[in-house]
Write a protein that binds this DNA or RNA. Sequence first.
RNA 1: GGUACCGUGGCCGAGUGGCUAGGCGGUGGUCUGCAAAACCAUAUACGGCGGUUCGAAUCCGUUCGGUACCUCCA
Length: 488
Amino acid sequence: MNNNLQIYNTLSRTKEKFEPIVPPHVGMYVCGPTVYGDAHLGHARPAITFDVVFRYLMHIGYKVRYVRNITDVGHLENDADEGEDKIVKKARLESLEPMEVVKLFTDRYHKNMDQLNVLHPSIEPTASGHIIEQIELIKSILNNGYAYEADGSVYFDVEKYNKDYQYGKLSGRKTEDLLENTRILAGQDEKKNSYDFALWKKTDPKHIMQWPSPWSDGYPGWHLECSAMGAKYLGEKFDIHGGGMDLLFPHHESEIAQSNASRGHDPVKYWMHNNMITIGGQKMGKSLNNFITLDEFFSGNQELLTRAYSPMTIRFFILQAHYRSTLDFSNEALQAAEKGMHKLFNTIEIIDKLVPTEKSTIDVRQFESRLYEAMNDDFNTPITIAYLFDLSRLINQVNDGKEKLTKEDISFVKELFAVFIFKVLGLKNESGKNSDLLIDQLMNTILVIRNDAKLNKDWATADRIREDLSKLKINIKDTKDGSEWSFE
RNA sequence: GGUACCGUGGCCGAGUGGCUAGGCGGUGGUCUGCAAAACCAUAUACGGCGGUUCGAAUCCGUUCGGUACCUCCA
């Protein structure tokens, strides 16, 4: 097992050596989507980031249980509707049952994740399926004296908690500052302090989504589901908790508080946060309404897009930046990523055609340790990719006869590429070599005719075939070894 | 206002006290009926001002600019 992995822990703000609590097992929990709308580019980032974490941990020999939740109870929405559940609001707008909305967008999310070649998590629990666990958690927080009831609702007592623990240690906040800055919300007068947050919220009978509890008919608070489900499936303390940076406060901060208040210790060893994707330097997000959905990227149907981009282009684009940096979207950047990725896939095909020699003139073995070092350094995928490009150039030089490789080195390189590109980075070749035998033979016939035309210097016919096929998105390339075709 | 973070060549993006990041684009080649693709080779950099140092884009201070969180948000 590769034992040099360093992970940047938000809690300590430093890179730490990764040592799982119960090796070789690793428990990882990542905040999934709230399913009330289509997934956009921002959702792709944590999904892909932690997919690579998942893949790499398994690759270096860990047994990983990866839990990614679906938030289907919704969070309070603090606009004019004053405390209305997000999913309920969407349901009213579209005259659907809340669970109909949940099903629709969960399915669409899954489809997008499959397109992005994101592995399925080991467990994908829903908040609505764990109301009992959340109620139990509230009970224990109440029993320990860190919460209080007010008119059927239950609130977390941050001031009390802060005497025994430290509220704000993850996000670097102080409760005094929070006092001055917390926005005035509905139900504020029930709370002892403005920064107290709801564990259980009483609701009126009109509210569609509600559950009975010892305190009132209502629904669980904003941050409870992850605390409850993380503990249920990964234990009271587990290794990695991931999510977007925007969840750092108050969401993850409150998870830590809930865990301490109920169980007396922190829930997580390593906190990982991916940075945001920006558009024109600004965060892409629901609230700013400046997001582009994944389906829009795949179809090109959006005014900001000059054309469509494939799922793998999106994936490669995201992996070309480190997960803790912001990543700025632009058509230009996306097209650059696409070309670069094709170059890599092209190299893989070239490896198969290399002619081995007795001796190697270049050292390709050193790339193995370099690639692992890059990944071990807090999952530095941009460096990993840079090394793959270096390797690609060397392979092309071999192909050009400028350098030489032995048979053993060639298969070594081939394996290295396969491991990192397909297994670790999770990319797949989308180029449409059609496996349909009929199409293959039809194309063969066409190319033979065109080649005859070329031999007769009948350029008009040759060009016409090429142009007409290009309208069908079939591209012809003339090479030394004859003509090749590819779809799309 | 509080708390973090960032400012790198035309674009996107790594990294680091002295040694080529990488990709795209540009330029020059190879190949080619043409085209496209592919390949090879290249140039352009670290916001401003001070300081530490033999040496800083990298550390410190300061200043300007930008972003995020503090409210649901990946």
